[in-house]
């Protein structure tokens, strides 16, 4: 009887200690995530502007207005363009590189791996400066290369047609090494004797790639793709730095909103025009997209959860 009582109190003591261990994270979660999220939703129901000094409840009007806002439509288009070009390009290049660097007979693999990873650890703002200047229409190195090849030399960042492609090249540049390392890790998990057996059966390299490597790597490819899609929807630094400041002193998302990705769109309404309510409604649209992507990601991965 006494023993049981003691055991119970020990259990309660441990429960309390466990709770105390998670408490700092829980408090920070409530203050930094939960309350701001509720507040953002609350604000999205208002015509709320610190410049016009209004705060008026308008229900879901912001959400309805959004779909008639040419800037919203433009930024969704720009972000989707970015996503459907940048993500497959990264997957293609990084998979190709990982497959090559996974070959046994090749030399200097470590060196190449290091080189491809360098952009990942290079400060993006500083790198964007350099790219901005490389893409300079008259003195830039890229147009110099193109002139050597007798190719047309676009105005790049100054031209609404070419600004986004220039930035997408940088977006791919930044993330190839990251995806490549994940694929290399995935490739290491494929047992070597599978290839040996296939080789003895007379399978060619291409057949092995199609029948063994790609199917076994498929979960990794899907996981990485979804991760890159989420990153693509949140891209900000590259288009911001490459469109604003520097030689041209452009507007963020310019020229002519041709690089207005969705986060620049939210930033523009929230922190340049101070339309807090409307900006919050737009942010919730982003939340919806990212939630769906994350759920897909976790579903495909099926990480073993403990709880």
């Amino acid at each position: 009887m006494i023993k049981a009582g003691k055991k119970l109190s020990q259990e309660r003591r441990l429960a309390l200690i466990g709770f105390l261990f998670v408490l700092p994270a829980v408090i920070l979660f409530i203050v930094l995530v939960f309350i701001p999220l509720l507040q953002a939703f609350y604000m999205s129901l208002f015509d709320w502007s610190t410049i016009r000094e209004v705060k008026k409840f308008i229900g879901l009007k912001n959400y309805i207005d959004m779909f008639h806002d040419p800037k919203f439509i433009k930024s969704v288009k720009v972000t989707i363009t970015w996503t459907i070009i940048v993500v497959p390009s990264i997957i293609f290049f990084s998979l190709l590189l990982a497959l090559i660097l996974n070959l046994k007979s090749l030399r200097f693999k470590g060196l190449f791996r290091t080189i491809y990873f360098i952009p990942v650890v290079t400060n993006m703002v500083a790198a964007a400066f350099v790219w901005r200047w490389l893409f300079e229409p008259t003195n830039g190195v890229i147009n110099y290369f193109l002139s050597l090849l007798h190719l047309p030399q676009p105005g790049w960042l100054a031209d609404p047609k070419w600004a986004l492609p220039a930035m997408m090249i940088v977006g791919v540049w930044k993330q190839i090494g990251f995806a490549m390392v994940i694929f290399l890790a995935g490739l290491q998990t494929i047992p070597r004797d599978m290839f040996e057996a296939a080789y003895l059966d007379g399978a060619s390299g291409v057949t092995m790639l199609r029948k063994i490597t790609l199917p076994l790597l498929n979960p990794t490819i899907v996981f990485t793709s979804v991760m890159l899609v989420i990153n693509a929807f949140r891209v900000f630094t590259i288009p911001y730095v490459m469109s604003a400041g520097g030689f041209t002193y452009g507007e963020p998302g310019g020229p002519l909103d041709s690089t207005r990705v969705f986060v620049i769109h939210i930033y523009d309404y929230g922190f340049r025009q101070f339309e807090l309510g409307y900006a919050s409604a737009n942010a919730f649209f982003l939340l919806l997209v990212i939630m769906v992507a994350t759920i897909i990601q976790f579903k495909t991965l099926e990480r073993p959860f403990e709880y």
């Binding site: 995530v33 309350i35 604000m43 929807f233």
Partner: peptide, 15 residues
């Protein structure tokens, strides 16, 4: 909260 992009929270956080 892994699903909640920072951009949704940034306006309230600024307040």
């Amino acid at each position: 909260s892994l699903m909640i992009p920072f951009q949704v929270r940034m306006i309230p956080l600024y307040q």
